[in-house]
């Protein structure tokens, strides 16, 4: 057992250049190194084109680094013979739930990965049911995916990954196409999986409120990691976040604005409860 489930070392990446085009290809990732610890809930934040989705696709060998190495549970993702071991350990959920559901019945879709791995039918039944229960979609197992809401579809997609019993689940903007209710459902599911089942979670998002719930936030800009810390410390750099086009949670912003106007306040506040307490203290003087 390795304490680090994912370890990226000096990863460089660029897409194949167009042979007609003489300009050198744009570097999407520049010398990125990061470790994801077992059981951690990490959020990766970044602007469009910051390389956050690209680094995610390196975590299970969908993309292979042009320079540097990525190890998953000690296995090099460039090792073609072990690519399915890597993908079984690190599952991936994408933005659009419609484009990742393969089968026409919920439970068959959840079984898809297990069918590919050649799991015996009896064990498969059990794992599919467990996965559906853990995302709260067991009652819908015989439904057709197009009858479900966006949030429900995304939970089915998560169940399809959980059924593989991965160590880590990487979610690439899983809530971007959902309504607020669906977003809440999905985030709650991710937190439960991380908390109750000890599954390492890597959440790529551009919602600050979602990132604030993680154990750790990695901020990317222009293919580089520019911050890597606990949420409180990351969001307290309000000006730095704004300079790269990112926001901070509304409560942090409020604290920041108060501070700018000369009222003593703490920008390490990221939750509404803390904010309410701090304001109460301020008002009582």
């Amino acid at each position: 057992m390795d304490e680090k489930i994912i370890s990226a070392q000096n990863v460089d990446f660029h897409y194949e250049a167009d042979p007609e085009d003489k300009t050198p290809p744009k570097q999407v990732l520049k010398n990125v190194s990061l470790d994801i610890g077992r059981g951690q809930f990490t959020a990766i934040l970044g602007h469009n084109g910051s390389g956050k989705s690209t680094i995610a696709k390196h975590m299970n060998g969908i993309l292979l680094p042009c320079g540097g190495k990525v190890y998953v549970d000690g296995i090099d993702t460039c090792d073609e013979k072990k690519i399915f071991d890597v993908r079984q350990r690190v599952g991936m959920v994408f933005q659009n739930p419609d484009n990742q559901i393969v089968a026409t019945i919920v439970e068959e879709d959840v079984a898809f990965a297990l069918e590919n791995l050649g799991v015996p039918p009896d064990e498969m039944r059990e794992r599919v049911d467990d996965a559906l229960r853990s995302v709260g979609m067991y009652e819908y197992r015989e439904h057709s995916p197009h009858q479900l809401s966006g949030g429900q579809k995304q939970r089915v997609a998560i169940a399809g990954i959980i059924a593989m019993r991965p160590d880590c689940i990487v979610l690439d903007e899983p809530t971007a196409m959902l309504d607020p209710k669906g977003r809440q459902e999905v985030l709650k599911t991710i937190r439960e999986l991380n908390h109750d089942f000890g599954i390492t979670a890597v959440l790529i998002t551009h919602y600050m409120e979602e990132a604030a719930q993680a154990d750790r936030i990695i901020v990317m800009d222009n293919g580089e990691i520019i911050m890597d810390d606990i949420p409180k410390n990351v969001f307290s750099n309000v000006e730095k976040m704004k300079s790269i086009g990112l926001d901070v949670p509304q409560v942090t912003e409020l604290m920041y604005l108060l501070g700018r106007d000369g009222i003593p306040s703490d920008t390490h506040i990221i939750s509404e409860e803390e904010c309410a307490d701090a304001l109460e203290k301020l008002l009582k003087g």
Binding site: F84, M92, D98, V102, V119, R125
Partner: peptide
Amino acid sequence: RRAEELAVAMECRCYQGGDGRTRLR
């Protein structure tokens, strides 16, 4: 675009053709 995304999602779920596949049903 959907086809492309689906192909990546299928790869993520270890799809490797019909050999050695089992079935739920």
